[in-house]
């Protein structure tokens, strides 16, 4: 596998790393584009994307990771002017389209799989819904909708959680103020808004008609909207996914998969999904 630094987009403003499989390229395999998460640079949170990219490139898939305009090593967009400071990172500046164009030129025969965490997952869906070149989407901590079983599990867990009862009592007692206590560790920014369920269902149906494959992975940090495997399929029981939707739940992992054991499990899951879905059986 070789890694190459690339620049693309208007005036070469976007900076990326292209992981090219070493073996003779299997032109049937799609390329993978890893979309930035939040305001992180292309290595991904805790270097997560580097590990994923190297593992899936080793499995034969070419991978492009890149920085959105105004983040990491990319220049601000010459079209919209200015960087992204103060705005939420998304595909609004056409960043993903430039990456798609670049990879499609590099590998004109195959489609593209988009992978993203958090806001990157949101961007992956939005682009996949409108771009025919997308053959797969891997969302990490992306969309999720609560179901009856979610609420049941949620309620039972809380009823039997001693710590929550202790917290309820503590909140009733006078308490010494702490300067740092309660400050959000990851900041209080919402990086994307969950789309309306009905609109999403329509987009998913359209994607299923195009045979787009989906891998939805959730960490334990999505517990406010996802708490059991296959919940996404249950929430969209009116969408015929066939065998195209795969879900996996990593309840021990945090949002950025900050522990190496969680990163390893996640990376293996993504690589095996890509191989199962897109590598033709020999």
């Amino acid at each position: 596998m070789t890694e190459r630094a690339v620049r693309f987009g208007p005036a070469g403003a976007l900076s990326g790393i292209y992981h090219c499989p070493e073996k003779a390229a299997d032109l049937a395999l799609p390329g993978v584009i890893i979309l930035p998460a939040g305001i992180d640079q292309k290595v991904g949170p805790t270097r997560l994307y580097v590990g994923i990219a190297r593992a899936i490139a080793a499995a034969g898939f070419p991978v492009l990771r890149f920085d959105y305009f105004g983040l990491g090593e990319s220049h601000p967009s010459p079209v919209t002017g200015g960087g992204r400071a103060g705005s939420l990172p998304s595909d609004q500046g056409g960043d993903v389209d430039f990456a798609l164009d670049w990879l499609s030129r590099e590998r004109p025969q195959a489609g593209v799989v988009l992978l993203g965490l958090c806001s990157g997952a949101h961007d992956a869906h939005r682009v996949a819904a409108r771009d025919q070149r997308i053959v797969g989407v891997c969302q990490l901590d992306g969309y999720g909708y609560r179901t009856g079983r979610y609420w049941l599990q949620y309620t039972v867990e809380r009823l039997f959680d001693r710590r929550r009862w202790v917290n309820v009592i503590r909140r009733k007692l006078p308490r010494k103020a702490s300067v740092e206590d309660g400050d959000p560790v990851t900041g209080d920014v919402d990086f994307f808004t969950m789309p309306a369920k009905r609109a999403l269902a329509a987009e998913l149906r359209a994607m299923m008609s195009r045979d787009v494959r989906l891998l939805y992975l959730f960490s334990g940090q999505t517990s406010n909207y996802y708490n059991y495997e296959r919940q996404f399929a249950a929430a969209f029981s009116d969408v015929d996914f066939g065998q195209r939707l795969t879900e996996a739940f990593f309840p021990e992992a945090d949002h950025t998969f900050s522990r190496s054991v969680d990163r390893r499990k996640l990376t293996a899951r993504v690589a095996s999904w890509l191989t199962n879905e897109f590598r033709p059986a020999s």
Binding site: P45, T46, R47, D161, R162, R163, S219, G220, Q221, S223, P251, E252, D254, H255, T256, S258, R259, S260
Partner: peptide, 18 residues
Amino acid sequence: FRSRTRQYAERDTDEFLG
């Protein structure tokens, strides 16, 4: 965000902030 049995502040580890 973890199950109750796995809740603790990590010390003596070889991983720091990811």
